[in-house]
Amino acid sequence: MSEQRVGDHTGELRVGEPIPELKVTPDRYLTYRYAGASGDFNPIHIDEEFARSVGLPGKILHGLWSMAQVARALTDAAGGPTHLKRLSVQFRGMGVPEQEVTVRGIVREIADGRAIVDVEAEQSGSKIIRNAEATLAL
């Protein structure tokens, strides 16, 4: 099948080794674009005043946007979108715009043509996604 060749631009995955780190800084207006793209218009993501009124520091990132950054690090590492078979995450703390987010992962296990990868996303020293686990088809 030729379908998995495009994007097969990265090296092999090896047990105990990290996947390439992904760094991204969501700009000031990212939450609006993600709200429009995803359909999630919860005001805690797009309304500064509302967010403060419910005890948040200000507009916060959508957890599912942060999860998409984890997914992107994985599909980039594995060679494209068809390789990601499972992703499970816990949302912790909260991400905010205009600060860099870093996704890191380590290959825990490879068996039967699949890799299990432990992943997390961190921003300004605190984890915004933890205990994430992914299954990649090799």
Partner: peptide
């Protein structure tokens, strides 16, 4: 919106070629 760069998500020719 999520910062994808893989042409499969944007480029019809690349997707068809794959």
């Amino acid at each position: 919106a999520v910062g994808e760069t893989n042409p499969l998500h944007f480029d019809l020719d690349a997707a068809r070629a794959a």
